[in-house]
Computed example of a mutant assay.
Amino acid sequence: MSFTAEELELAPKKYEYLDHTADVQLHSWGDTLKEAFEQCGISMFGYMTELESIEIKQCEEIEATGDDLEGLLFHFLDELLFLFSCDPFLICSKLVITQFETGEEFRIKCKCYGEEFQIGKHPQGTEVKAITYSAMHIVNEPDKRKELFVIIDI
């Protein structure tokens, strides 16, 4: 599979990890809610390995739905975790949300770029066991930076 130069270009980092008792909190942001969601997904993969070690060799597409923004974020991250947890264990360094609906229905379609996780090539970070709703917070105010806070179970 070959990719265009645009598909191989990674987004700038707009996330950080915040300490939380026995877990970790992902904090991502962006100019748009869509960008903040993409950054949140990448931050989860970045917690599992060093993103610089990932080559873009394949692309998978996921879909997620929710009843509200929090549910959409939960299911989006859960689908990404499922993608990593199932054969071929895809670890991603780039996410591009191609459909982002937050009106009457909450739906995401996302292209996930990366490669199969390989011990030895990809330094092992921390295993993510589950996504949680605990202390989930979405800042989505007009004319302000969009921010997401999500605690993941490690």
Rank of each mutant, 00 (worst) to 15 (best):
V128D: 03
E116F: 04
P12F: 09
L77I: 13
E141M: 09
E55Q: 13
F76S: 00
E60P: 04
C86W: 10
D87C: 12
C92G: 15
T126F: 11
Q39S: 07
I56F: 06
K13Q: 12
K121H: 06
V24E: 01
E55K: 13
Y47P: 01
E116S: 15
G30P: 01
Y113V: 02
S93N: 13
F100A: 08
E63T: 15
P142N: 12
I154V: 15
K94D: 03
E105K: 14
L81P: 01
E63A: 11
A5C: 06
N140W: 10
F82K: 12
T126Y: 12
L18Y: 07
M136P: 04
E16F: 12
D67N: 15
L10V: 13
I152D: 04
G114R: 04
G114L: 03
V128A: 05
K34V: 00
D68S: 10
S43A: 14
Y113M: 02
K34E: 06
V150F: 09
H75E: 13
T4A: 06
E141Y: 12
L10H: 09
S53M: 01
I97E: 04
D143A: 07
K34D: 00
G120D: 01
L51F: 00
G41K: 04
R145G: 03
T132Y: 00
E38K: 12
G103K: 08
F3L: 07
K94T: 08
G114F: 02
A64M: 10
L8E: 05
I152H: 04
S134W: 15
K144D: 08
E101T: 12
F82D: 12
F117I: 13
F84M: 01
L26C: 05
E104H: 14
F45C: 05
D19R: 13
L72M: 15
I151G: 02
Q25E: 13
Q58P: 06
P88V: 10
I138D: 01
L73N: 01
K34L: 09
G71K: 05
Q118L: 14
F89C: 09
V128C: 13
V24S: 02
E63D: 09
E52R: 07
F74H: 14
Y113S: 00
M1G: 07
S93Q: 07
G125A: 03
K146Q: 10
D68M: 08
A11L: 11
E147D: 14
I56A: 05
E55G: 05
E104F: 01
H137P: 06
F74A: 04
I138L: 06
I138V: 13
R145Q: 10
